[in-house]
Design a protein around this nucleic acid. Structure first.
Length: 431
RNA sequence: GUGAGUGUAGCUCAAUGGUAGAGCACUGGUCUGUGGCACCAGCUGUUGAGGGUUCGAGCCCCUUCACUCACCCCA
Protein backbone atom coordinates (compact mmCIF):
# COMPACT_ATOMS: atom_id res chain seq x y z
CA UNK A 1 0.00 0.00 0.00
CA UNK A 2 1.22 3.45 -0.83
CA UNK A 3 2.33 5.24 2.30
CA UNK A 4 0.66 8.50 3.17
CA UNK A 5 3.16 11.26 3.53
CA UNK A 6 3.28 14.66 5.10
CA UNK A 7 2.11 17.53 2.91
CA UNK A 8 4.84 19.48 1.20
CA UNK A 9 6.16 22.38 3.24
CA UNK A 10 4.69 20.96 6.46
CA UNK A 11 6.42 18.83 9.04
CA UNK A 12 6.09 16.94 12.29
CA UNK A 13 7.69 18.32 15.42
CA UNK A 14 9.06 15.37 17.38
CA UNK A 15 9.43 15.34 21.17
CA UNK A 16 13.10 16.38 21.24
CA UNK A 17 12.32 19.32 18.98
CA UNK A 18 9.15 20.10 20.89
CA UNK A 19 11.26 20.77 23.98
CA UNK A 20 12.86 23.68 22.14
CA UNK A 21 9.42 24.98 21.11
CA UNK A 22 8.00 24.64 24.60
CA UNK A 23 10.87 26.57 26.17
CA UNK A 24 10.63 29.33 23.60
CA UNK A 25 6.86 29.60 23.93
CA UNK A 26 7.09 29.61 27.72
CA UNK A 27 9.60 32.45 27.72
CA UNK A 28 7.52 34.46 25.27
CA UNK A 29 4.34 34.01 27.27
CA UNK A 30 6.13 34.96 30.46
CA UNK A 31 7.63 38.10 28.96
CA UNK A 32 4.34 39.21 27.45
CA UNK A 33 2.50 38.58 30.70
CA UNK A 34 4.85 41.01 32.43
CA UNK A 35 3.96 43.70 29.91
CA UNK A 36 0.28 43.08 30.52
CA UNK A 37 -0.54 41.33 27.25
CA UNK A 38 -3.17 38.58 27.24
CA UNK A 39 -3.31 35.69 24.81
CA UNK A 40 -6.06 35.58 22.21
CA UNK A 41 -6.78 32.41 20.26
CA UNK A 42 -8.62 32.95 17.01
CA UNK A 43 -9.72 30.36 14.44
CA UNK A 44 -7.25 29.12 11.84
CA UNK A 45 -9.97 29.50 9.25
CA UNK A 46 -11.49 32.84 8.30
CA UNK A 47 -13.62 34.19 5.47
CA UNK A 48 -11.33 34.93 2.54
CA UNK A 49 -12.55 38.52 2.37
CA UNK A 50 -10.96 39.27 5.75
CA UNK A 51 -7.46 38.86 4.38
CA UNK A 52 -8.18 40.38 1.00
CA UNK A 53 -9.45 43.54 2.68
CA UNK A 54 -6.76 43.85 5.35
CA UNK A 55 -3.55 42.64 3.76
CA UNK A 56 -4.40 44.14 0.37
CA UNK A 57 -5.72 42.66 -2.87
CA UNK A 58 -2.53 43.54 -4.73
CA UNK A 59 -0.09 41.88 -2.35
CA UNK A 60 1.71 38.65 -3.20
CA UNK A 61 0.26 37.00 -0.12
CA UNK A 62 -3.32 37.50 -1.26
CA UNK A 63 -2.65 37.10 -4.98
CA UNK A 64 -0.89 33.77 -4.91
CA UNK A 65 0.04 32.44 -1.49
CA UNK A 66 -3.18 31.76 0.39
CA UNK A 67 -4.73 28.37 1.07
CA UNK A 68 -8.23 29.20 -0.11
CA UNK A 69 -11.04 26.75 -0.72
CA UNK A 70 -14.79 26.45 -0.77
CA UNK A 71 -16.77 25.42 2.24
CA UNK A 72 -19.67 23.01 1.76
CA UNK A 73 -22.11 25.91 1.44
CA UNK A 74 -19.98 27.47 -1.28
CA UNK A 75 -18.49 30.29 0.76
CA UNK A 76 -14.79 30.99 0.40
CA UNK A 77 -12.57 30.16 3.36
CA UNK A 78 -8.86 30.79 3.87
CA UNK A 79 -6.32 29.35 6.28
CA UNK A 80 -4.90 32.39 8.02
CA UNK A 81 -1.68 33.64 6.39
CA UNK A 82 -1.03 36.05 9.29
CA UNK A 83 -2.59 36.90 12.62
CA UNK A 84 -3.37 40.59 12.81
CA UNK A 85 -6.45 40.46 10.59
CA UNK A 86 -8.12 37.90 12.85
CA UNK A 87 -7.31 39.84 16.00
CA UNK A 88 -8.80 42.99 14.53
CA UNK A 89 -11.83 41.09 13.25
CA UNK A 90 -12.40 39.77 16.75
CA UNK A 91 -11.79 43.20 18.29
CA UNK A 92 -14.47 44.72 16.11
CA UNK A 93 -16.91 41.83 16.47
CA UNK A 94 -16.74 42.09 20.28
CA UNK A 95 -16.88 45.91 20.35
CA UNK A 96 -13.82 45.68 22.51
CA UNK A 97 -13.28 49.48 22.57
CA UNK A 98 -16.45 49.83 24.63
CA UNK A 99 -15.01 47.57 27.31
CA UNK A 100 -11.52 48.99 27.64
CA UNK A 101 -9.72 52.02 26.20
CA UNK A 102 -6.61 50.07 25.26
CA UNK A 103 -6.30 46.38 24.37
CA UNK A 104 -3.07 44.44 24.75
CA UNK A 105 -3.25 41.12 22.93
CA UNK A 106 -0.88 38.46 21.68
CA UNK A 107 -1.26 35.26 19.71
CA UNK A 108 1.00 32.33 19.08
CA UNK A 109 0.36 29.68 16.49
CA UNK A 110 0.42 28.37 12.96
CA UNK A 111 0.03 30.44 9.83
CA UNK A 112 -0.23 29.12 6.28
CA UNK A 113 1.27 30.41 3.06
CA UNK A 114 1.67 28.46 -0.14
CA UNK A 115 5.31 29.35 -0.85
CA UNK A 116 8.19 27.26 -2.11
CA UNK A 117 9.72 25.63 0.98
CA UNK A 118 13.22 26.69 1.89
CA UNK A 119 15.49 27.02 4.89
CA UNK A 120 13.46 28.73 7.62
CA UNK A 121 10.39 28.93 5.42
CA UNK A 122 7.55 26.43 5.55
CA UNK A 123 3.99 26.40 4.30
CA UNK A 124 2.75 25.94 7.83
CA UNK A 125 4.82 28.10 10.10
CA UNK A 126 4.55 29.58 13.57
CA UNK A 127 4.37 33.19 14.52
CA UNK A 128 4.02 35.06 17.74
CA UNK A 129 2.24 38.35 17.22
CA UNK A 130 1.57 41.21 19.60
CA UNK A 131 -1.03 43.92 19.14
CA UNK A 132 -1.61 47.17 21.04
CA UNK A 133 -4.91 48.68 20.00
CA UNK A 134 -6.27 52.06 21.02
CA UNK A 135 -3.45 54.59 21.16
CA UNK A 136 -2.15 57.02 18.58
CA UNK A 137 0.63 58.14 20.89
CA UNK A 138 4.33 57.51 20.28
CA UNK A 139 4.32 55.86 23.71
CA UNK A 140 2.54 52.91 22.10
CA UNK A 141 5.19 52.64 19.38
CA UNK A 142 7.98 52.68 21.94
CA UNK A 143 6.25 50.08 24.10
CA UNK A 144 5.72 47.80 21.11
CA UNK A 145 9.32 48.00 19.94
CA UNK A 146 10.52 47.47 23.49
CA UNK A 147 8.26 44.41 23.82
CA UNK A 148 9.65 42.98 20.61
CA UNK A 149 13.25 43.49 21.67
CA UNK A 150 12.60 42.03 25.10
CA UNK A 151 10.82 39.00 23.64
CA UNK A 152 13.81 38.29 21.44
CA UNK A 153 16.17 38.78 24.39
CA UNK A 154 14.07 36.47 26.55
CA UNK A 155 14.30 33.58 24.13
CA UNK A 156 18.03 34.10 23.74
CA UNK A 157 18.25 35.49 20.23
CA UNK A 158 21.58 37.22 19.65
CA UNK A 159 23.28 39.23 16.89
CA UNK A 160 20.19 41.12 15.90
CA UNK A 161 19.76 44.63 14.63
CA UNK A 162 16.75 46.89 14.72
CA UNK A 163 15.62 48.88 11.71
CA UNK A 164 13.15 51.72 11.74
CA UNK A 165 11.21 53.72 9.20
CA UNK A 166 8.02 55.71 8.86
CA UNK A 167 5.56 55.26 6.04
CA UNK A 168 3.50 58.35 6.79
CA UNK A 169 -0.27 58.48 7.03
CA UNK A 170 -3.17 58.78 4.64
CA UNK A 171 -2.50 62.53 4.53
CA UNK A 172 1.15 62.46 3.49
CA UNK A 173 1.80 59.07 1.94
CA UNK A 174 -0.11 59.75 -1.30
CA UNK A 175 2.13 62.77 -1.92
CA UNK A 176 5.21 60.71 -1.35
CA UNK A 177 3.87 57.98 -3.53
CA UNK A 178 3.33 60.42 -6.36
CA UNK A 179 6.82 61.84 -6.18
CA UNK A 180 8.28 58.34 -5.91
CA UNK A 181 6.44 57.24 -9.04
CA UNK A 182 7.76 60.27 -10.91
CA UNK A 183 11.30 59.42 -9.86
CA UNK A 184 10.92 55.74 -10.65
CA UNK A 185 9.47 56.44 -14.08
CA UNK A 186 12.56 58.52 -14.84
CA UNK A 187 14.69 55.51 -13.95
CA UNK A 188 12.33 52.89 -15.32
CA UNK A 189 14.96 51.50 -17.68
CA UNK A 190 17.13 50.36 -14.77
CA UNK A 191 14.39 48.47 -12.93
CA UNK A 192 13.81 44.73 -13.05
CA UNK A 193 10.70 43.39 -14.78
CA UNK A 194 8.99 42.73 -11.51
CA UNK A 195 9.51 46.30 -10.32
CA UNK A 196 8.32 47.80 -13.59
CA UNK A 197 5.09 45.94 -12.93
CA UNK A 198 5.03 47.18 -9.33
CA UNK A 199 5.35 50.78 -10.49
CA UNK A 200 1.64 51.04 -11.02
CA UNK A 201 0.20 48.69 -8.45
CA UNK A 202 2.51 49.04 -5.41
CA UNK A 203 5.40 51.43 -6.09
CA UNK A 204 6.69 51.49 -2.51
CA UNK A 205 7.67 47.87 -2.78
CA UNK A 206 10.24 48.77 -5.41
CA UNK A 207 12.23 50.26 -2.56
CA UNK A 208 12.97 46.91 -1.01
CA UNK A 209 13.60 44.91 -4.15
CA UNK A 210 16.85 43.01 -3.75
CA UNK A 211 17.98 43.23 -7.37
CA UNK A 212 21.25 45.14 -7.57
CA UNK A 213 20.03 47.58 -10.19
CA UNK A 214 16.82 48.29 -8.30
CA UNK A 215 18.77 48.89 -5.12
CA UNK A 216 20.83 51.55 -6.83
CA UNK A 217 17.69 53.24 -8.05
CA UNK A 218 16.16 52.95 -4.57
CA UNK A 219 19.20 54.50 -2.94
CA UNK A 220 18.72 57.64 -4.99
CA UNK A 221 14.97 57.77 -4.46
CA UNK A 222 13.30 60.51 -2.45
CA UNK A 223 13.11 59.51 1.20
CA UNK A 224 9.73 59.36 2.82
CA UNK A 225 10.86 60.69 6.18
CA UNK A 226 11.89 63.91 4.40
CA UNK A 227 8.35 64.56 3.22
CA UNK A 228 6.23 63.45 6.18
CA UNK A 229 3.47 65.76 7.28
CA UNK A 230 4.04 67.71 10.50
CA UNK A 231 2.07 65.22 12.60
CA UNK A 232 3.90 62.18 11.30
CA UNK A 233 7.30 63.85 11.53
CA UNK A 234 6.69 64.90 15.12
CA UNK A 235 5.42 61.45 15.99
CA UNK A 236 8.50 59.82 14.50
CA UNK A 237 10.82 62.17 16.40
CA UNK A 238 9.16 61.33 19.71
CA UNK A 239 9.39 57.62 19.01
CA UNK A 240 13.11 57.98 18.33
CA UNK A 241 13.60 59.87 21.59
CA UNK A 242 11.81 57.15 23.50
CA UNK A 243 14.01 54.48 21.99
CA UNK A 244 17.05 56.48 22.94
CA UNK A 245 15.80 56.67 26.53
CA UNK A 246 15.74 52.89 26.53
CA UNK A 247 19.21 52.84 24.97
CA UNK A 248 17.84 50.76 22.10
CA UNK A 249 20.15 50.93 19.10
CA UNK A 250 18.48 51.18 15.75
CA UNK A 251 19.17 52.36 12.27
CA UNK A 252 16.85 54.17 9.92
CA UNK A 253 16.17 52.07 6.84
CA UNK A 254 14.58 54.24 4.19
CA UNK A 255 13.91 51.21 2.04
CA UNK A 256 11.92 49.17 4.56
CA UNK A 257 8.30 49.40 3.46
CA UNK A 258 6.78 46.08 4.63
CA UNK A 259 4.76 43.67 2.57
CA UNK A 260 1.29 44.26 3.94
CA UNK A 261 -0.66 47.26 2.76
CA UNK A 262 -2.21 48.14 6.09
CA UNK A 263 0.92 49.59 7.67
CA UNK A 264 1.10 53.32 8.42
CA UNK A 265 3.62 55.57 10.13
CA UNK A 266 6.20 53.71 12.21
CA UNK A 267 7.47 50.42 10.81
CA UNK A 268 10.25 48.33 12.27
CA UNK A 269 12.01 45.09 11.65
CA UNK A 270 14.52 42.92 13.42
CA UNK A 271 17.07 41.07 11.33
CA UNK A 272 19.40 38.35 12.54
CA UNK A 273 22.78 37.35 11.18
CA UNK A 274 23.45 33.82 9.98
CA UNK A 275 20.09 32.89 8.53
CA UNK A 276 20.85 33.20 4.86
CA UNK A 277 18.19 34.88 2.81
CA UNK A 278 15.52 34.45 5.49
CA UNK A 279 17.07 36.95 7.86
CA UNK A 280 14.02 38.96 8.90
CA UNK A 281 12.95 37.42 12.18
CA UNK A 282 10.41 39.93 13.40
CA UNK A 283 8.68 42.94 12.00
CA UNK A 284 5.73 45.19 12.46
CA UNK A 285 4.39 48.68 12.54
CA UNK A 286 1.40 50.92 12.99
CA UNK A 287 -1.89 50.12 11.32
CA UNK A 288 -3.94 53.15 12.21
CA UNK A 289 -6.55 52.63 9.50
CA UNK A 290 -7.09 48.89 9.68
CA UNK A 291 -9.83 48.79 12.32
CA UNK A 292 -11.84 51.21 10.24
CA UNK A 293 -11.05 49.39 7.00
CA UNK A 294 -12.52 46.24 8.49
CA UNK A 295 -15.70 47.98 9.51
CA UNK A 296 -14.93 49.24 13.00
CA UNK A 297 -14.52 52.74 14.33
CA UNK A 298 -11.45 54.87 13.73
CA UNK A 299 -9.10 53.31 16.24
CA UNK A 300 -5.31 53.34 15.82
CA UNK A 301 -3.10 50.38 16.62
CA UNK A 302 0.40 48.97 16.37
CA UNK A 303 1.84 45.48 16.46
CA UNK A 304 4.52 43.09 15.33
CA UNK A 305 4.93 39.45 14.43
CA UNK A 306 7.95 37.18 14.73
CA UNK A 307 8.71 34.07 12.71
CA UNK A 308 9.41 31.38 15.25
CA UNK A 309 10.62 28.64 12.89
CA UNK A 310 13.59 30.57 11.65
CA UNK A 311 14.29 32.04 15.09
CA UNK A 312 14.47 28.50 16.45
CA UNK A 313 16.93 27.54 13.71
CA UNK A 314 19.22 30.27 14.90
CA UNK A 315 18.74 29.48 18.59
CA UNK A 316 19.74 25.89 17.98
CA UNK A 317 23.04 27.13 16.61
CA UNK A 318 23.74 29.52 19.43
CA UNK A 319 22.30 28.45 22.77
CA UNK A 320 22.37 25.19 24.74
CA UNK A 321 19.56 22.72 24.29
CA UNK A 322 16.86 22.65 26.97
CA UNK A 323 17.84 20.56 29.98
CA UNK A 324 15.53 17.65 30.56
CA UNK A 325 14.31 17.35 34.15
CA UNK A 326 15.66 14.57 36.38
CA UNK A 327 13.64 11.41 36.02
CA UNK A 328 13.26 7.97 37.51
CA UNK A 329 12.90 4.52 36.00
CA UNK A 330 11.29 1.64 37.85
CA UNK A 331 12.64 -1.84 37.17
CA UNK A 332 10.39 -4.68 38.28
CA UNK A 333 10.75 -8.44 38.58
CA UNK A 334 7.78 -10.76 38.33
CA UNK A 335 4.10 -10.00 38.40
CA UNK A 336 4.16 -9.15 42.11
CA UNK A 337 6.89 -6.60 41.55
CA UNK A 338 5.02 -5.03 38.65
CA UNK A 339 1.81 -4.81 40.70
CA UNK A 340 3.60 -3.24 43.61
CA UNK A 341 5.20 -0.70 41.28
CA UNK A 342 1.89 0.68 40.06
CA UNK A 343 0.89 2.60 43.13
CA UNK A 344 4.47 3.55 43.91
CA UNK A 345 4.82 5.19 40.50
CA UNK A 346 1.49 6.97 40.71
CA UNK A 347 2.49 8.46 44.04
CA UNK A 348 5.76 9.79 42.66
CA UNK A 349 4.06 11.20 39.59
CA UNK A 350 1.48 12.98 41.73
CA UNK A 351 4.41 14.48 43.62
CA UNK A 352 5.69 15.89 40.33
CA UNK A 353 8.44 13.46 39.40
CA UNK A 354 8.84 11.99 35.92
CA UNK A 355 8.64 8.21 36.27
CA UNK A 356 8.65 5.49 33.63
CA UNK A 357 8.80 1.73 33.67
CA UNK A 358 9.12 -1.09 31.18
CA UNK A 359 5.89 -2.09 29.50
CA UNK A 360 7.40 -4.93 27.48
CA UNK A 361 8.23 -7.42 30.24
CA UNK A 362 11.88 -7.26 29.24
CA UNK A 363 14.80 -8.80 31.05
CA UNK A 364 16.45 -6.99 33.92
CA UNK A 365 19.30 -6.03 31.65
CA UNK A 366 16.93 -4.74 29.03
CA UNK A 367 15.09 -2.69 31.63
CA UNK A 368 18.35 -1.17 32.83
CA UNK A 369 19.24 -0.27 29.28
CA UNK A 370 15.92 1.48 28.83
CA UNK A 371 16.55 3.42 32.03
CA UNK A 372 19.93 4.45 30.73
CA UNK A 373 18.60 5.50 27.37
CA UNK A 374 15.95 7.65 28.99
CA UNK A 375 18.63 9.37 31.01
CA UNK A 376 17.09 8.30 34.31
CA UNK A 377 18.92 9.69 37.31
CA UNK A 378 17.65 6.99 39.66
CA UNK A 379 16.49 3.45 39.09
CA UNK A 380 14.15 1.86 41.60
CA UNK A 381 14.34 -1.90 41.64
CA UNK A 382 11.30 -3.80 42.85
CA UNK A 383 11.62 -7.59 42.82
CA UNK A 384 11.06 -10.60 45.00
CA UNK A 385 13.90 -9.72 47.40
CA UNK A 386 12.65 -6.19 47.92
CA UNK A 387 9.05 -7.26 48.35
CA UNK A 388 9.78 -9.75 51.09
CA UNK A 389 12.05 -7.25 52.88
CA UNK A 390 9.56 -4.37 52.55
CA UNK A 391 12.22 -2.27 50.88
CA UNK A 392 13.23 -1.05 47.46
CA UNK A 393 16.66 -0.79 45.91
CA UNK A 394 17.57 2.69 44.69
CA UNK A 395 20.41 2.93 42.23
CA UNK A 396 22.06 6.26 41.44
CA UNK A 397 22.96 6.03 37.77
CA UNK A 398 25.44 8.89 37.99
CA UNK A 399 27.35 7.82 41.09
CA UNK A 400 30.80 6.26 40.90
CA UNK A 401 30.75 2.49 40.51
CA UNK A 402 32.15 1.68 43.97
CA UNK A 403 30.61 4.62 45.82
CA UNK A 404 28.51 3.63 48.86
CA UNK A 405 25.78 5.87 47.40
CA UNK A 406 25.66 3.85 44.18
CA UNK A 407 22.99 1.45 45.30
CA UNK A 408 21.18 1.56 48.61
CA UNK A 409 18.22 -0.10 50.26
CA UNK A 410 15.37 2.16 51.31
CA UNK A 411 12.30 1.09 53.32
CA UNK A 412 9.13 1.40 51.23
CA UNK A 413 7.61 4.02 53.51
CA UNK A 414 10.71 6.24 53.33
CA UNK A 415 11.08 6.14 49.54
CA UNK A 416 9.00 9.20 48.79
CA UNK A 417 10.85 11.47 51.12
CA UNK A 418 14.20 10.06 50.12
CA UNK A 419 13.69 10.65 46.39
CA UNK A 420 12.03 14.02 46.67
CA UNK A 421 14.87 15.11 48.90
CA UNK A 422 17.52 13.92 46.46
CA UNK A 423 15.73 15.27 43.40
CA UNK A 424 15.01 18.54 45.16
CA UNK A 425 18.69 18.95 45.89
CA UNK A 426 19.45 18.15 42.29
CA UNK A 427 17.02 20.71 40.99
CA UNK A 428 18.57 23.27 43.28
CA UNK A 429 21.90 22.60 41.65
CA UNK A 430 20.52 22.61 38.14
CA UNK A 431 18.68 25.83 38.93
C1' G B 1 6.01 30.50 -9.98
C1' U B 2 11.79 30.27 -11.79
C1' G B 3 16.82 28.08 -11.43
C1' A B 4 20.65 24.71 -9.54
C1' G B 5 22.04 20.47 -6.62
C1' U B 6 20.77 15.83 -4.14
C1' G B 7 17.71 11.15 -3.46
C1' U B 8 21.08 3.77 -1.57
C1' A B 9 19.29 0.25 5.63
C1' G B 10 16.32 3.97 11.25
C1' C B 11 20.95 7.69 10.73
C1' U B 12 25.81 9.08 8.14
C1' C B 13 27.68 7.42 3.75
C1' A B 14 30.41 3.53 0.11
C1' A B 15 29.79 0.48 -4.38
C1' U B 16 34.46 1.26 -12.74
C1' G B 17 27.48 -0.44 -16.49
C1' G B 18 28.70 -6.87 -13.93
C1' U B 19 26.64 -10.85 -6.68
C1' A B 20 23.97 -3.93 -2.93
C1' G B 21 28.14 -2.90 1.50
C1' A B 22 30.43 -0.38 5.99
C1' G B 23 30.12 2.47 10.48
C1' C B 24 26.61 4.04 13.97
C1' A B 25 21.82 2.66 15.91
C1' C B 26 18.63 -1.47 17.20
C1' U B 27 17.85 -6.83 19.29
C1' G B 28 20.09 -10.91 21.82
C1' G B 29 24.32 -13.20 24.17
C1' U B 30 29.18 -13.36 26.95
C1' C B 31 26.91 -11.46 32.32
C1' U B 32 19.85 -16.50 34.23
C1' G B 33 18.71 -9.71 39.66
C1' U B 34 21.84 -4.72 37.27
C1' G B 35 22.86 0.42 32.35
C1' G B 36 27.34 2.86 30.14
C1' C B 37 32.83 -0.10 28.13
C1' A B 38 34.54 -4.43 25.33
C1' C B 39 33.81 -8.78 22.40
C1' C B 40 30.43 -12.17 19.64
C1' A B 41 26.03 -13.00 16.88
C1' G B 42 21.62 -11.28 14.60
C1' C B 43 18.14 -7.75 12.20
C1' U B 44 17.54 -3.98 8.53
C1' G B 45 16.74 -2.44 1.47
C1' U B 46 10.97 -2.73 -3.90
C1' U B 47 18.70 1.82 -4.41
C1' G B 48 12.23 7.89 -3.96
C1' A B 49 8.46 6.30 -7.97
C1' G B 50 7.43 5.12 -13.21
C1' G B 51 9.26 4.26 -18.03
C1' G B 52 13.44 3.70 -21.63
C1' U B 53 18.57 2.16 -23.55
C1' U B 54 21.50 -2.42 -22.66
C1' C B 55 23.05 -9.36 -22.61
C1' G B 56 23.07 -6.75 -17.88
C1' A B 57 21.21 -0.28 -14.67
C1' G B 58 22.08 2.08 -7.83
C1' C B 59 25.22 4.09 -11.96
C1' C B 60 23.28 6.24 -18.66
C1' C B 61 18.48 8.76 -20.80
C1' C B 62 13.27 10.60 -20.08
C1' U B 63 9.15 11.65 -16.83
C1' U B 64 7.47 12.40 -11.98
C1' C B 65 7.76 13.14 -6.67
C1' A B 66 10.44 14.76 -2.51
C1' C B 67 14.33 17.30 -0.07
C1' U B 68 18.20 21.21 0.03
C1' C B 69 19.91 25.96 -1.50
C1' A B 70 19.06 30.40 -4.16
C1' C B 71 15.50 33.76 -6.82
C1' C B 72 10.83 35.49 -5.37
C1' C B 73 7.95 36.43 -1.00
C1' C B 74 7.97 37.31 4.05
C1' A B 75 8.25 36.60 9.95
Amino acid sequence: METIRVIRGMRDIHPDQALWWQRMERRLADTLRRYGYGEIRTPLLEPTALFARSIGEETDIVEKEMYTFQDRDGSSLTLRPEGTASVVRSYIENTQWKKEPVSRLYYLGSMFRHERPQKGRYRQFSQVGVELIGSLEPAADVEMIDVMVECMNAIGLKDTSLQLNSLGCSACRPNYRDSLVVYLKQNQGDLCDNCRRRLDINPLRVLDCKAEACRRVADGAPKIIDVLCADCAGHFQTVRKGLENLALDYEINHRMVRGLDYYTRTTFEMVAAGLGAQNAVAGGGRYDDLVKTLGGPEIPAIGFAAGLDRILLKLQDTIPEPASPPNIFVVTRGEAGWRASLELMRGLRRAGVQVCSDVRRGSMKSQMKQANRRGARFVIILGEDELTAGRVTVKDMHAEENSDQKQIQVPREDLHGFLLNRLGLLEGVVG
